[in-house]
Design a protein around this nucleic acid. Structure first.
Length: 473
RNA sequence: GGCGCCGUCGCCAAGUGGUAAGGCAGAGGUCUGCAAAACCUCCAUCCCCGGUUCAAAUCCGGGCGGCGCCUCCA
């Protein structure tokens, strides 16, 4: 049974889907105005683990939506700067996001709607009309606002009340005409030269919060949905406002669980362009680190704790992950198995599985889960050192590691990366063979030269009992 | 000013009342042509001060230090 922290109650709660065939989950996706940064990916990797836990540990079918926000000030400005249409401009960035997601082993989800898709714009229009009909809106200077005074529950997620507003807090100049500072715009009037849609209020474009409510309600069906998630920064105002507009429009609870992933910092500081510490995946890769190492790093601490990205940290992640994949390679290479006999791993397998699955089921405790895996790895290495295993034990061990990775998605990712070699396999095997000859005639300097040459091409040779094995560095 | 989080070994990081998981790095050793991998051994009493308790890293109070949200942001 999954226990998960719900921002709404500020407590860990037992999760079960509402009466529905699927877990219905909505994740606030990126605004597509730039290449995604590693902070974005922390959120998406952690929520990918949540998805995998729901599927592979809890065995729930899932319908998950991650949207792309493809219209806002930044995307409009970016498109205009590059002389592209909004669609062309955002297309590029969506493609980049998808490619980074893939590289990080983030599983595709059922729906990736774009705010500006016709059916979504239309759904937004209907939502605004419904809010208007129920008296939750007002117009001012061409914009349609949500009047939070009509929603007494406003603030239940972020727990910010009116008194909490910072004295002297800046109020946007173009929003001075609001009745209450916290009122938010549902629909903005078109500005000259900017893209617009007409959904019955004159040409304009949606406010930021509107799209997510509309898409979630359209794609996931009757509220409440089960889970709504995103980065912590979205709690206020985005999610608070989504709740306000969705719940007043439908008269029903919007989402049962609200799950938020803490921020990633870089070298102790919040990422910001002016500090120059915003990193993208290609930048990480260009420094010689793998996407799998980043994924590992992101999983090595709890999703509700701030995580400080450092180069030493990703180095450590590389090394830790290497230990795991070395172990998998050792299992694959294990040839001296016994046909039958007593199981030597049954208890160890059971203990490791229980500890891992309990950890992940307890609010996604990936760090504890990794601890369970490393203990298991050591135990099995000891057994392997002490003599051959029986076939069924070997299979059980491999199955266990596979099951762990179904949730973490990091070892398979690294194996996949290992397939991209700087030297063809045939050549590696040929060089190993000629090195073997050299070793037999005790020409160790030649043998070492081959190993050194391959190392410079990213291939590590290790001599083991009965031969030589290689791996990618 | 309001709300909230965090402080565990050189680094990363679990543990939230029962006497400190795990990883990286480091030291020594076994194995080995060498190297690597693997294994073994070593490596912390939990920011400080009080309190509660038979028992606290874990609960309470007070400090000190770091951070977040209240404004676009994953």
């Amino acid at each position: 049974m999954l226990q998960i922290y719900n921002t709404l109650s500020r407590k860990k709660e037992e999760f079960q889907p509402a009466k529905s065939k699927h877990v219905r989950m909505y994740v606030c996706g990126p605004t597509v105005y730039a290449r995604g940064h590693i902070g974005n990916f922390r959120t998406f990797v952690c929520l990918d683990v949540l998805r995998r836990v729901l599927r592979n540990i809890c065995n729930y079918p899932i319908k998950e939506v991650i949207n792309f926000t493809d219209v806002d000030d930044k995307t409009i400005a970016g498109a205009s700067d590059e002389g592209l249409s909004l669609r062309e401009y955002t297309d590029q960035h969506i493609k980049d996001f998808q490619s980074d997601w893939l590289a990080l082993g983030i599983q595709p989800v059922e729906e990736n709607p774009r705010a500006t898709d016709n059916e979504n714009i239309e759904a937004m229009g209907n939502l605004v009309k419904e809010l208007e009909r129920k008296g939750h809106t007002y117009q001012s200077e061409g914009s349609i606002y949500f009047r939070i005074a009509t929603h007494p529950e406003y603030g239940k997620l972020s727990r910010l009340d009116k008194k909490g507003i910072k004295p002297g807090a800046r109020i946007n100049v173009d929003e001075y005409d609001k009745e209450d500072v916290r009122d938010f715009v549902l629909w903005k009037p078109v500005k000259a030269g900017e893209p617009s849609w007409d959904i019955g209020f004159g040409p304009g474009r949606p406010g930021w919060h509107l799209e997510c409510s509309a898409m979630a309600l359209r794609l996931l069906g009757e509220p409440p949905i089960d889970i709504h998630a995103g980065g912590v920064d979205l709690i206020f105002p985005h999610h608070e406002n989504e709740i306000a507009q969705s719940e007043t429009a439908t008269g029903k609870l919007f989402s049962r669980f609200w799950i938020h992933v803490e921020h990633l910092f870089v070298e102790g500081k919040k990422m910001s362009k002016s500090t120059g510490n915003v990193f993208t995946l290609p930048e990480i890769v260009s420094k010689g680190y793998r996407p799998s190492a980043l994924r590992y790093l992101l999983l090595s601490s709890h999703y509700r704790k701030q995580l400080n990205f450092t180069w030493s940290g990703i180095e450590q992640a590389e090394e830790s992950l290497r230990r795991l994949t070395d172990f998998l390679a050792r299992l694959d290479a294990e040839t001296s198995v016994k046909k039958a006999g007593q199981s030597r791993v049954k208890v160890k397998v059971e203990n490791a599985r229980n500890r891992f699955f309990e950890a992940l089921s307890d609010d996604l405790n990936t760090a504890e889960g990794l601890g369970a895996i490393f203990d298991f790895v050591r135990d099995v290495n000891v057994l392997l050192d002490s003599g051959p295993l029986i076939q069924s034990d070997l299979v059980a061990i491999q199955k266990t590691m596979d099951d762990f990775d179904l949730v973490l998605g990091v070892m398979a990712l690294r194996k996949q990366e290992d397939l991209q070699l700087e030297a063809p396999v045939e050549e590696i095997n040929r060089l190993i063979e000629s090195r073997e000859q050299a070793r037999k005639r005790r020409d160790f300097s030649f043998a070492d030269k081959i190993r050194k040459d391959l190392l410079s091409r990213g291939i590590v040779l290790e001599d083991i009992a009965g031969g030589t094995r290689w791996k990618k560095r």
